[in-house]
């Protein structure tokens, strides 16, 4: 692979006034880099890539990258992306979203896009908290963890986004972290290559809010947490239940072949047009 920063610079928008909005040490920059490297490695022309997002820290990502970019309303990115993809199926459509955007306000759109198995890649930055609005608990905040709206600890149960995507019908589901960059590149590249709805959950550090409110430290400490607690799926499958406690599984969790929505629609159109011609 080429020197990573060189590749990234080819894909950043020259006219956009940097600096970006993210806190120093934020994991979102790593995700941006990984997305660019994956697109670059697959040789997808910039003109054919559409990056959609909703609202939140992660959703600010598209504005910095030199593709067709659509920064939409809170939670709705997948529904907008669906319209783009169906109207012009040759485009490579990527949604960058966060745990609040995708799983709370956008939960319904997420599960229905999984169900349709439409050829869209979702990169879900999961930092267990609402960062942009100041540290409120999210649908992935672990029970008993603190948020600015959970000052006595979270009493809710979190979603497991990958399990949710698999059971709703996505055809490619993977998890990685902003520490495991090579694995992350592989997972996103695999997702972009998949014909169908693909989801890559990326555990990312929000030291500014999650780290501070939960006394989990600075970016380095949080990256160390990912390093120590990630268990690749090959190992996960072999270890006994008690050794999985406190850990999370990473890697490619689900990869199946099934009918894709746009393909099915194209087949329907062809069937109807053949029928009209034979009349």
């Amino acid at each position: 692979m080429e020197l990573k920063s060189d590749v990234i610079h080819q894909y950043l928008r020259p006219k956009k006034k940097f600096p970006h909005v993210w806190c120093s040490g934020c994991g979102l920059g790593v995700i941006l880099g990984s997305m660019i490297r994956s697109i670059h490695s697959l040789d997808i022309p910039k003109d054919d890539v559409v990056v959609c997002s909703g609202i939140g820290c992660s959703s600010r990502l598209p504005v910095y990258v030199d593709f067709n970019t659509l920064h939409t309303t809170h939670g709705r990115a997948i529904a907008f992306a669906t319209g783009v993809k169906v109207a012009k199926p040759r485009l490579k459509v990527i949604v960058v979203t966060g745990d609040g955007d995708c799983l709370a306000i956008g939960g319904n759109h997420f599960i229905h896009a999984c169900r349709r198995n439409i050829d869209i890649t979702v990169i879900l930055a999961n930092n267990w908290i609402y960062g942009m609005t100041g540290g409120q608990f999210s649908p992935t905040t672990p029970t008993e963890k603190f948020g600015s709206t959970a000052p006595y600890g979270n009493i809710e149960q979190p979603f497991n986004p990958c399990d949710l995507a698999i059971s709703a019908g996505a055809s490619y589901v993977a998890r990685s972290t902003v520490y495991h960059v090579d694995q992350l590149d592989k997972m996103i590249t695999g997702a972009l290559n998949k014909r169908g709805f693909s989801v890559v959950e990326v555990l990312s550090n929000c030291h500014t809010y999650f780290g501070r409110l939960n006394k989990e430290g600075d970016p380095v400490t949080m990256l160390n947490y990912f390093k120590k607690h990630a268990l690749p799926v090959q190992a996960w499958d072999k270890v006994p239940e008690e050794k999985r406690a406190g850990k999370f599984v990473t890697g490619l969790l689900h990869d199946v072949e099934k009918d894709e929505y746009c393909d099915n629609y194209e087949k329907l159109v062809e069937r109807l047009q053949a029928k009209m011609e034979s009349k």
Partner: peptide, 12 residues
């Protein structure tokens, strides 16, 4: 989602 989808389609 209906409204979102038609805007997305129009952008395309």
């Amino acid at each position: 989602a209906s409204m979102a989808s038609i805007i997305g389609a129009s952008c395309a």
